[in-house]
Design a protein around this nucleic acid. Sequence first.
DNA 1: GTCTATAGTGGGATAGAC
DNA 2: GTCTATCCCACTATAGAC
Lengths: 239, 239
Amino acid sequence: MTGVTTAAADPVEPKPEKPRRARGEQTRQLILETALRLFRERGYAETTMRVIAKEAGVAVGNAYYYFDSKEHLIQGFYDRNQAAHREAAEQILASETELAPRLRGVLHAGIDVNEPYHSFAATLFKTAAEPTSPLSPFSRESSPAREAAIALFRDVVDGSTAKLDPELRKELPELLWLAWMGVVLFWVYDKSPGRRRTRRLIDGSVPLIDRLVSLSRLRVLRPALRQALALIESVRRDD
Amino acid sequence: MTGVTTAAADPVEPKPEKPRRARGEQTRQLILETALRLFRERGYAETTMRVIAKEAGVAVGNAYYYFDSKEHLIQGFYDRNQAAHREAAEQILASETELAPRLRGVLHAGIDVNEPYHSFAATLFKTAAEPTSPLSPFSRESSPAREAAIALFRDVVDGSTAKLDPELRKELPELLWLAWMGVVLFWVYDKSPGRRRTRRLIDGSVPLIDRLVSLSRLRVLRPALRQALALIESVRRDD
DNA sequence: GTCTATAGTGGGATAGAC
DNA sequence: GTCTATCCCACTATAGAC
């Protein structure tokens, strides 16, 4: 390609998109993929930045050029899986119209997507749990990812035929996301073969949630529902 | 009791209880107190083991003699506060007989006890959240502390005049402990002045829980209650 | 059993040359 | 953007004093 006649490369051929930047992005991806592979193979704590760099064929400093810290590699993982969850969920959302199976399908899809990373996810959870960490699911930095996740549950609710109290309908997506966080927490701690207990938790919780949502329209339960919604409202204030 | 004539030191004076061990315990406490003070003053990550040792007037190796790792200092903190919570709760448990104020009092007492360590507790939470860590509230190593905490909520329930479904009564202490973990999680993330939002969460949740517990005796809700209890049972299996 | 002092290892993170 | 050299700190090892 060094050829003479094309020597100075007159711009007949349009340059590939973002030649410089693309290379940077490529290096970034290379480092991330290498890191995630090593995390899966030998665990997070056991994988040193030196080894990640070596395996990826770059210098340690270069890894730190793209990722502020070892923990920031986790954010890459997080984003990737959020996207994968959304994609896996689309199928169910397109085919089901009842609330319960929609919810059930989306929850199982989330577990499916994360399963290969179960052992590594324990560490993910550790760093995500720190409130001061930008990786926390509640942090400002994560809010795009969080909003995306909540939007997924809004789809679950809004695309269903369920009849809901309008106030409840407004709050439900965020509540379901919270419940999902709870399921993830349970899953992280779940050591049962094939994560049977988590599957059972989902299969048992969904009909229960479905039943409670229906019951919430009963006259006897209206005050309790109002009280619960007022609680959410009061707690949300002054954040 | 080896001695013949007991030449050296006839046992006229009984030795002070555990002369050697007491000294060890003292050193241990000294190191722990020093560490917790420094954690509060400058944060966990910023406090090095070197500084802890120096401030306590011991050698680094000595600190490691008593605490297997820096994180293990947190277990000391955890145990201390559990005891303090229990103690603070006694007053309320001795004076109240209704479920709601008993629960409310115990929850607020828990926050009171932990409040001085709020900023440091964030880090505590981080390490506690790792499932593989012995510091996790769900780990086997923590089970004495966890059992003690659940026992506290058993007192809350059993010492109250509330009329409960017997099945629910059996499960409620553990459920309340779980709720308490949730409150702690919320508290850790709570940045509002004076932790107002956490206080509101408690004040709003307790009457709601109280109401739901009462409602659970209604005929319309019995199936839902059974369903919920069955869920707990099925999820608990094969641990 | 309790403690010191010292010298090391290894890994996360950074500075600054190129 | 990429590298090499270096810093700092958690943690270990060891050898020995009391």
